[in-house]
Nucleic acid binder design. Sequence first.
DNA 1: TCTTTCTTTTTGACTAGTCAAAGTGCGTTC
DNA 2: GAACGCACTTTGACTAGTCAAAAAGAAAGA
Lengths: 225, 225
Amino acid sequence: MPSSTVEDYIKRLYYEEQHAPGVLVPMGRLAEAMNVVPGTVTTMIKALADSGLVNYEPRAGVRLTDGGRKLALHVLRRHRLVELFLVQTLGFDWSEVHDEAEELEHAISDKVLDKIDALLGFPKADPHGSPIPCANGIIAHEPVQPLSSCIVGTRYRIARVLDNDAKFLQFAERNGLIPDAHITLVAKDESADALIITCHDRASSCTLGGNAATRIFVALPPASH
Amino acid sequence: MPSSTVEDYIKRLYYEEQHAPGVLVPMGRLAEAMNVVPGTVTTMIKALADSGLVNYEPRAGVRLTDGGRKLALHVLRRHRLVELFLVQTLGFDWSEVHDEAEELEHAISDKVLDKIDALLGFPKADPHGSPIPCANGIIAHEPVQPLSSCIVGTRYRIARVLDNDAKFLQFAERNGLIPDAHITLVAKDESADALIITCHDRASSCTLGGNAATRIFVALPPASH
DNA sequence: TCTTTCTTTTTGACTAGTCAAAGTGCGTTC
DNA sequence: GAACGCACTTTGACTAGTCAAAAAGAAAGA
């Protein structure tokens, strides 16, 4: 059974690969993400390569193997089911659950996970809109784009809000920026690095910095035919 | 924050102290209980003594300090709340939850613990009848005796069934030997090391070996005035 | 091509936890 | 009171994970 350290590396690697598909993940990138010095990553990656979870190309970078990707999705499944469980069953706020899930995802057995899955009605997404991988490792990939790359005037549906910043999640919730909310990008001020968006459910608008806008992912709403 | 290894040693030490009050716990006893060699225990106990969790008397044994006892009760609180949660909320069988809780007790934050406590209605005991310590470290000590030391003919209430043997718990449940069940010790055959008991709720009786009888703790039923 | 710079790897060391095996203390027995 | 036996402690070694700092590649500039 992989240690929680191994699971964390693999999970991070999956994340990095998602955000830069097709290229090897450089060691420095991973070191920064994992908050360790580069030498530690080199050592660790060599061990992961030995256990068949990654392909390691010295001085070039690292890539998950199929086995590594499968493990990553399993960890992600635990993380996201736990997050939803904390919100739905235990009444946590969606801004609090990421850190809690970060611990619990390593301690939960498949048996407990299945029970939670059933209790929640086999959900498809976590509280932030991130898809929950199936037990067999299949994950839905909805075509989404960051709010920062959206077109002024178009109506969108919020698909996901990244979960790693509690303060931002609290702001988002206050302003109705939650998954499945419908919004329109009203204005985009490149020089001020600001976006103004309207939230249709509450007929209010709010202003977002460019950085915050990269944390919200939107999709086109279903065609109203 | 104490590691889960430290928590396991402290928890075990608490358990040993409960089963032999007033005397120092010998290192060999602890080594056997923790499934490590004696040398490992010596090393570990010295470290625990340095962090003020135990009093260590070389070649005599070890005893929890007040701080150690507080930690033990905190771990026990997590363990027992998790067990009850697994049974009550997730629908586990009471025979399965001990091993699951053994992992989860180290990963659960106080925040999650409080939510679980509230969800379950601030319960007083886990599914096996063991008292759940309060957050402030107070634990109810009901006067109980092992079934093995009971008097033939007297009516008792089952207070606790020890939780560490799944097979035995399944047997106990099948025979109605669960907390708050009322039973009478019908016969005691010392030479055969067997006890025959009647379970009042189901008007059936069953036979128990002497060893099994030490796993069931009973109290006198409330006076029927 | 040579040199500088940046990233990556290597090396040596450290903590937590563990074991195997040798060494030590202490009570019992003769 | 010397010797035995047992419990306990010490020592050296090992794994996992980490850091600091030195060494090595690779790429880019002069």
